[in-house]
Design a binder for these strands. Structure first.
Lengths: 272, 272
DNA sequence: GTGTAAATAGAATGAATATTCCATTCGTGA
DNA sequence: TCACGAATGGAATATTCATTCTATTTACAC
């Protein structure tokens, strides 16, 4: 244990955390990482609660406190209890505070995106057709291989979806058209395409969907309306109305839907 | 003691306080008055501390708690502890419960992800440091070229960021390590790196940040806590606590923050 | 492999804390 | 002034919790 005096305020606490963060053994590192991200919980939790949340034994938390220079957990907790402000402002007030910093300022922008994200999620929850969702999952879970395509603004979604499926051991192939290759030969019977596209729709995405159709392979799509060319090409189409702010959309709703599909498919597959 | 059920949130607590405040005996009135004015202290104090602050005996505080309908002080305190900060819901076990209970239908999953997204966004709104955000935007806006890196789970964010910057005519270069090329030669004086990484941190991302440092180029990062290796390597670091649900995160907050950066930088550049 | 030190888990301990109980005080109506 | 019930203070108890200790495991150097 260092002879340095223990941090007596939250700021010093964080600084100290950075200091000691090198070469920490596994469990102590777990403590450090959890507490770094949840400093606000320290004031109102017991050792056992923090330990469980961090995934370690209570004794590990104690060792961590001592490593930080405190005599024990209680002393450390006292620091946070003293600096404990009144319960955090509600959501509306926080947004208001962010906006106050002036229209067009980064904080005000963030407030807008946060709000837009909220609305999009709300929208999603109420507009998704559970039946279509179920059927989509079923079809994807039975696929030999899941092909994924999404370009331009939908590319990020396609990437994350591919990543999530891979992580769940679902055979997935992302068509990203690097080098302008279309990998049409990779389509095999029993495969299913998951296509993501929003207006203005990428020709490449729509073409790929057509190819799958032509070969009697399934097509599921995530798109924005029944006017989408993907709508008619798909066995099942999930629509997401992302609320726009300026020229950009935060994709919160689309990503949530995509992730839902990935996890549901992954789970369904591992059960069979 | 009333048979009415005890208030389970702060709002009801206040309402109940008003209800019972008529014709209270002296000491209980003291309790009520003190606690009404210091509700925020309840979560982080002991009975003895509150009693002393209110100028009464601990037993008086106990009687007050029971008058409010709680079984004792601990139950009342729990209400205030829970209401502070993000709800201590453990999504990992919730996911497990969902699966076990057979309620793991895709729609139920979606509902969870929507809720997680909401929480993450609220979290972001309250935890973001407006000053750091401003400085980050300034530095990025002045960069000759913005380099972007984000791998694995952060790759989708990096992609979307690059897309958004491109769309706003900001010179941006995404390091995606395809073909295991690191494009180290592309770093030039006046460039700035925007690095995105979450635990477990990709070595490639951290290495790239080191290279920028070594060449006296700026580094901005979006990461999850001050324990991140990126934290110390960055001129400015923005932290985002995305709420996990099972092994996955919906990235709602991260994407919103990323997009804010992109739009703010794009705007700042076009103004000069 | 073998030996050594560090790290860890989990039970055991002791301190702090909530809670109850009872003797005493206070207020009120005869 | 007395009687009676409510209110109170403070000590006694039970419970929860922080903290320590020790056996075991893990990591590392030889």
């Amino acid at each position: 244990m260092s002879t340095k005096t223990a941090p007596q305020n939250v700021e010093n606490f964080q600084a100290r955390l950075v200091e000691i963060s090198d070469g920490l053994p596994k469990r102590l590192r777990q403590c450090a990482e959890y507490l770094a991200g949840h400093t606000d919980r320290i004031a109102v939790s017991t050792v056992a609660q923090l330990a469980e949340a961090a995934g370690v034994q209570p004794s590990a938390v104690m060792r961590f406190c001592q490593l930080m220079g405190y005599s024990g957990f209680s002393e450390m907790q006292q620091v946070f209890r003293d600096s404990y402000g009144q319960s955090p402002l509600d959501y509306r007030t926080r947004l208001g505070n962010l906006r106050k910093s002036g229209a067009g300022s980064p904080s005000a922008l963030l407030a807008e995106f946060v709000e837009v994200g909220h609305n999009s999620l709300e929208n999603l929850a109420s507009s998704v057709d559970a039946r279509v969702l179920d059927l989509s999952v079923k079809q994807l879970a039975e696929a030999q291989m899941v092909h994924i395509v999404g370009l331009r603004r939908a590319y990020a979604v396609a990437s994350y979806l591919t990543y999530a499926l891979e992580r769940m051991s679902v055979p997935a192939f992302q068509h990203d058209f690097t080098g302008c290759l279309d990998h049409a030969h990779a389509i095999r019977s029993g495969d299913v395409l998951l296509a993501i596209s929003f207006a203005p729709y990428s020709d490449e995405t729509v073409d790929l969907a057509r190819q799958f159709r032509a070969r009697d392979c399934g097509v599921i799509s995530i798109t924005d309306s029944i006017m989408s060319p993907l709508w008619q090409l798909s066995d099942h189409a999930l629509s997401v109305q992302e609320v726009d702010f300026g020229a950009f959309r935060a994709l919160s709703a689309t990503l949530s839907l995509a992730l839902t599909l990935a996890v549901a498919v992954g789970t369904a597959r591992s059960e069979t």
